[in-house]
């Protein structure tokens, strides 16, 4: 494509436990990039893996330093996916929207700096800027939106489980979901399109912004859940070829997943549920 400049640059952000990172997580990025690039409208330039902080309090969640290191090892062989440790280095659990805001801001900063340095050629005046589907978006002051020429767009990359979790009471704030789909956009990898479409249909917010929710169908079923990986490790079963060799070596070296580590946070309520339930009961 000679006029590739017309494509919107996209950065994909995946949030999650990555406890531990598996080939499935890495596949999500590959699938999403292929799919968005094939539309001819987007050009995926970067992927960011953002492991959740320890304050999330999920059962069996081992320390962020290990999870971040494993993610770094796993992405060593990738020339476009990297690990962001901002989220995991915060004291408090961070809502996904805050992670998105942070990374979008960081992106526009680095873009602005790059632009000054490189003196990027201005695009032709009068060139129609791509309007993001959805039109009049509630644009925030601190939100460098898609109209800011050239700044890559940040999109949340996830599996269908996230779409499904939007319906769990007190897990997400509706205004956060709205901000995610209006100001950023989502890329969801689905096993069968039907299921994801059902979740979109059943949510009014998602339905009204469905053009910002990109569904990517998986052509090879991939269900390497980290929960199953941990279970196999506890039972001393092989997880070879399901997680990168470097991650496996690290797990063995530090004896990471044991019966004890799985009991971590047992009976503790997830940070988002704690926070929002409190807020809900105040009203």
């Amino acid at each position: 494509m000679e006029n590739s400049d017309h494509r919107t640059e996209v950065v994909l952000l995946a949030c999650g436990s990555f406890n531990p990172i598996t080939h499935m997580h890495l596949r999500l990025f590959e699938l999403a990039r292929d799919c968005l690039n094939e539309t001819g409208k987007y050009k995926v330039v970067k992927g960011i893996i953002s492991p959740v902080g320890d304050a999330y309090k999920k059962k069996g969640l081992i320390s962020a330093s290990h999870r971040v290191t494993m993610a770094r090892l796993a992405t060593e062989s990738s020339d476009w996916v990297e690990v962001g440790d901002w989220e995991s280095s915060q004291k408090e659990w961070q809502e996904t929207i805050k992670v998105l805001r942070y990374h979008q801001q960081k992106l526009s900063h680095s873009y602005a700096t790059n632009n000054v340095d490189k003196v990027a050629p201005l695009s032709k005046p009068g060139r129609k800027r791509k309007r993001e589907a959805g039109g009049h978006l509630p644009v925030r002051q601190n939100q460098p939106n898609s109209e800011t020429k050239g700044t890559p767009q940040l999109k949340l990359l996830c599996g269908t489980d996230i779409l499904e979790s939007f319906a769990v009471p007190n897990l997400w704030k509706p205004e956060d979901i709205l901000e995610i789909v209006t100001n950023y956009g989502m890329v969801c990898i689905t096993r069968t399109g039907n299921e994801a479409q059902k979740f979109i249909y059943e949510s009014d917010i998602l339905w009204s912004h469905k053009e910002n929710v990109h569904l990517v169908e998986e052509w090879i079923s991939n269900d390497i859940s980290a929960t199953k990986i941990r279970r196999a490790l506890r039972r001393r079963q092989s997880v070879r070829y399901l997680v990168p060799d470097s991650v496996l070596t690290y797990i063995e070296k530090h004896k990471l997943y044991t019966a004890e580590s799985e009991d971590q946070n047992t009976g503790v309520i997830l940070a988002p549920l704690q926070r929002y339930a409190k807020e809900a009961s105040k009203h």
């Binding site: 596949r27 292929d34 079923s221 390497i224």
Partner: peptide, 28 residues
């Protein structure tokens, strides 16, 4: 099998012909 695994070589070839990524499905 405790993790469904359907990485068929036919699918891999199909993806390769389309220029799609097969990273993490077959070794680098």
């Amino acid at each position: 099998e405790w993790i469904p695994n359907e990485i068929s070589a036919t699918n891999i070839r199909c993806a390769l012909r389309k220029g799609q990524s097969v990273k993490y499905l077959i070794p680098d």
